[in-house]
Design a protein around this nucleic acid. Structure first.
Lengths: 112, 112
DNA sequence: CAAGATACCTCGCCTGTCAAGGTATATAAT
DNA sequence: ATTATATACCTTGACAGGCGAGGTATCTTG
């Protein structure tokens, strides 16, 4: 995993929110989706994932409920709220802005 | 300044190293260059800048010397080392990788 | 019945950011 | 003269997010 903690820092919440935009999901699944979407290049650490869930819940961006699995391990599902959708869009805008700025600063000269 | 601390986190050192690739410079100038390069959209906080210099020096990525200004405030100049150039290139590679991964995760669905 | 996958969780350390405070010089305005 | 602003440097301590290390429980497969 070449992506360092500091580079991903601050994007975790938006990544989770985006993954909840289409449909409710649960922690383990969200992380596996991330792994597959990135062709096994990236995966959130469990501790990071769950602390992010707590923050997002605290902020009112997601709500949670237990699945009714008759079999297998219990699943805690997460659902994005209207506020969460706004925060998600804001996060995406911030990413685009940050990307443009960092690209400008890093690629203004090409040393690669 | 819409770019949050967490999004920029981890790029600071590479930003500084890139700015030293062409020629030696000093703190105040580097920060002003960043400000101009980004059309006043971004500027490092002084504390962040100087703590980053200490880290980079500690890591052997930059060396430092005092300017011989006859007039005005003294300037501490920084010079990138060979190790620093390597670290810079590594930082640029990491940025490209991180950008690709985050883009994949955030733009796999378009909600903007 | 051991191993591995699924599925959840918390504690406490680490590290980069930055607000707040400081020093000193030169110039322009009041 | 004094105040303000720009230049130019610096440190301390709080804060917050990432995550290593540890834990629990269920199901499947060899």
């Amino acid at each position: 995993m070449s992506i360092t903690a500091d580079i991903i820092r601050g994007h975790t919440e938006t990544i989770i929110l985006v993954s909840l935009m289409e449909h409710d999901s649960y922690g383990y699944q969200i992380n596996k989706d991330i792994l597959h979407k990135t062709n096994n290049r990236y995966e959130l650490k469990e501790a990071t994932l769950y602390t992010a869930f707590r923050r997002l819940e605290q902020a009112g961006y997601i709500t949670t409920y237990w699945g009714d699995e008759k079999v297998g391990a219990r699943r805690r599902y997460y659902s994005i709220t209207q506020e969460g959708r706004k925060a998600c869009e804001q996060g995406l805008r911030e990413w685009k802005e940050a990307k443009a700025v960092i690209d400008k600063l890093l690629e203004s000269n090409e040393y690669m």
